[in-house]
Computed example of a mutant assay.
Amino acid sequence: MLHEVSFPSYNKRDEVQGWIYVPAAKPKGIVQIIHGFGEHSRRYLHMIVSFMDAGYIVAADDHVGHGKTAIVNDAWGDWGDAGFRTMMEDEHTLKELVCEKYPNLPYFLFGHSMGSFITRDYAAKYGDDLAGITICGTTGTFRGAAETAELLKKTCEDGHGTESNPEFTGALMGWMGERCGEITIGNEWICADPYVQRDHADDPFDAFTRPTSNRSLYDFTQMMEAIKGTQWAQKVPKTLSIYNIGGDQDPVGEYGKGIYEVSNWLCDTGHQVTTKVYSGYRHEIHNYAAIKNEVEAGIIAFMDGVLG
């Protein structure tokens, strides 16, 4: 069964578009998928089906400025002016909506890339309401983010927040293909599979080829600032189960270093975290044909283990 839902965004401008996928079986829990920068939630259909087959209800939405939400509100790449926690608060609204329909079930989050940043910030504020989280393709200290943030902040203060300057995107992310050989599309860092690259680039619901406003890009840097160090980790409930996964050729995770950096922040503050790094794989480990079933099985085993 599929529910299509719509709800007001935290930015007080947009209507967020979401979906609740329900298996044809008695559900044992709920997992909310939180997608990354420049993409949309239906890129996770393979994972959604796997989670449903394992007995989980799956919830997902398209963030403001992304996917169907951007189309409905005519706001590609513009996240509104309510600040960097807009998407996190929208995910909390979706959770409340899902729990009204399906109460009293253990609730998990899976967040990839920017979705992992949102998940980590969510856990620091609302973690007591969760059974566990999976963070995939996350970042530790993101290279160049602090310097680019200062430039973006000044640009926004000078009245250019709703404009889009490509040089800022280049400064923040332009280095990420450094280990990918010849760059022809610009997204080679997500996955070595050229079919995945082309599918991502040509997807009409993706924001990959669309500009992001300076204000929204600044908010993106502030998402990363909010989840740095033990000062973030100590806000996460000690009882929350955490699974941290990624590829060691992923520039977002600084080729494995950032993944372990996050796990170490959590361990230093008394948390139990399971970490798995897939050797030889780039950012979207869940989109490699060779390992996507293994990746999904690992997430399911993590969630089942929490329940069991």
Rank of each mutant, 00 (worst) to 15 (best):
G308F: 01
C191A: 07
L151R: 10
H35W: 11
M176F: 07
G181R: 09
A60S: 12
I71A: 11
F51Y: 11
T274I: 12
T269Q: 13
E147C: 03
G170M: 05
T275G: 07
L217K: 03
L45F: 14
R179G: 08
S164P: 07
A171F: 01
N73G: 06
P194Q: 04
G80C: 15
C267A: 14
I20K: 00
L45M: 13
D14P: 04
P251M: 12
G229D: 14
W175Q: 12
R85L: 10
F84A: 01
F84T: 04
Y260I: 03
T169G: 08
V295F: 05
A124Y: 02
I185M: 06
S113D: 03
S216C: 13
G77K: 02
V295S: 00
L172Q: 07
I259W: 02
G127E: 00
N104D: 13
M176Q: 15
A59N: 00
F110S: 06
F110W: 14
I185W: 11
M52V: 08
H271W: 09
Y218G: 00
T239N: 15
I300W: 06
I245S: 11
A70P: 00
C180D: 13
N165G: 00
P194G: 10
K228H: 14
Q197T: 13
M52I: 10
R282A: 09
P23E: 12
R42K: 14
N104V: 05
A54P: 10
N264G: 00
Y102S: 07
D14N: 12
S50V: 02
L240T: 04
Q231F: 04
L266M: 12
